[in-house]
Simulated assay, not measured.
Amino acid sequence: MKQTNGMSDAAILGMGTALPKHSVAQSDIAELIASTLQNRSDLARFARRVFRSCGVETRYTCESNYLDPLEACRYLPSHDESAVPTTEERMDKYKREALPLGLTAAEKALKDADMAPDRITHLITVSCTGQYQPGLDVMLIRHLGLSPRVNRLPLIFQGCAAGLKAIQMARDVVQGAPGSQVLVVCVELCTLHFQPVKEREALFAASFFGDGASSCVIGPPESHHQHYLKLGSGYSVLLPDSTEDMTWEVGNTGFDLFLSPRIPKLLGAHLEEELRVLLEGDKLPELWAIHPGGRGIVDSVQEVMRLSDEQTQYSREILRTAGNLSSVTIMFVLNAMRQDMKAQDQTFTEGVAMAFGPGLTAELMRFNYVKAYSSSVKEQDHVLL
């Protein structure tokens, strides 16, 4: 096992993603919401405009009720709101649907990493859209055949940034405890929390969230590993004057999300300086794994960092085909990027990953795509320190 400054190297050795079986066209969701605003024609027109312009074409949901006739949707009723599901009902649905989706992603990640379940030493589970105990971590251990002595680290209610936070936590575990192999599993069922729309601000959150799961295995790369992502330095930062611009609270009919339209501007104002801190004077990398929290966020990062359309294509494509999957999304982006590097027969490519959540929090991390472990990779490790 190779060491760097006394610490083990850490890399994403395998990844897996999963989506629910129900897909919904963005145009259908727009019409569903517009139908609930029959007495607010101005808001209905605004809803259609927001849904057309947010960069999403398709989303996935664990809730088949969204595929029923418009008048039968309990989550977004056109008339009587007394039948809107309670938080208890939504959590019951989460408990039934989260485990199968998480299992699918985790099994793919273990297979991709060629990792036997009994080698996993730590399990980090991530979700902000549902809670129950014994939780997802316990259920995954039982169904995957992990050791009952696995160190469990649930990361809950942290929002969209939590997927990248979990990857950085796993990196720190591997670097600090030689021999560790960490399984990260993120599951988000965002559509369980759709609410009847009463004001414009609520439309932003309703316009791009979807359901999904992602997973990765993080450990020290060994001689047989190929097409992995070597993890470098990173950190989390709270952006100033932004505490109220993204909130996520438990309500009586699900969780209540507020997203301020100021978020892209806030990121544009502060992100460039934070990336200078992260890169420590090094040149800008080629790969940019941007959490697609919305079209405006990707636009803002692209503009302030002067990126090409090719550099943001991974984030925009995930947003277009699946929407914003909260903490799950960053691994979808990294996995798409990794597969493209493999298809292009790239050998070694530098990158930076970023995700954003309540706080307003920016999670930032450097990484490298590596085709195959070799001494030449070892010589380039300085870019990550």
Rank of each mutant, 00 (worst) to 15 (best):
P20N: 07
K378M: 04
K93I: 07
P69G: 14
A343W: 10
L76S: 01
E317V: 03
L203G: 05
Q339E: 12
M341K: 02
I33W: 15
Y94M: 13
D172Q: 12
Y314I: 00
Y228S: 00
K342E: 09
H224C: 02
H225R: 04
A372E: 13
V304L: 05
Q195T: 12
K95G: 00
R45F: 11
K108M: 09
Q302G: 10
E272H: 08
M115I: 11
Q226H: 13
P220E: 14
S233I: 03
L275F: 09
G251E: 09
G234Q: 08
Y369W: 03
S82V: 05
V84I: 13
V250L: 11
Q311A: 09
L67H: 14
T58P: 02
D137A: 14
V352W: 00
A162G: 14
G234Y: 11
M169V: 04
G159D: 04
L360K: 01
S78N: 14
Q380A: 10
M7N: 06
E274T: 03
I218D: 00
P20G: 15
M331D: 08
V197R: 04
C216P: 05
I33V: 15
I263S: 00
T17S: 09
L266T: 03
E280L: 12
R59S: 03
S8Y: 03
L238M: 04
L76Y: 10
G254F: 01
I124M: 07
V352A: 07
G254R: 11
E199Q: 06
V377C: 10
N368Y: 00
T4H: 04
G210D: 01
A289N: 02
Q38I: 12
G323F: 10
E350Y: 06
R262G: 01
E249M: 11
D9S: 09
G16P: 11
L136Q: 15
K95I: 01
G359R: 07
D211F: 03
S64E: 07
S260Q: 08
L203D: 02
K93S: 07
D68T: 14
A18K: 06
D92V: 12
E107R: 06
R149A: 13
M7L: 12
L275A: 01
G176N: 11
P285R: 06
K265G: 05
E89C: 07
E201M: 04
L385H: 09
R171K: 08
S23Y: 12
G163A: 03
E317W: 00
D112K: 04
Q344F: 15
F157W: 02
T243A: 06
V370Y: 05
L229I: 11
L155F: 15
F204C: 00
F255N: 02
L257G: 13
G351S: 04
L103C: 05
T36Q: 15
L101Y: 11
Q158T: 03
R276C: 15
V304D: 01
D245R: 08
A109L: 10
D211A: 08
W248L: 14
M169F: 11
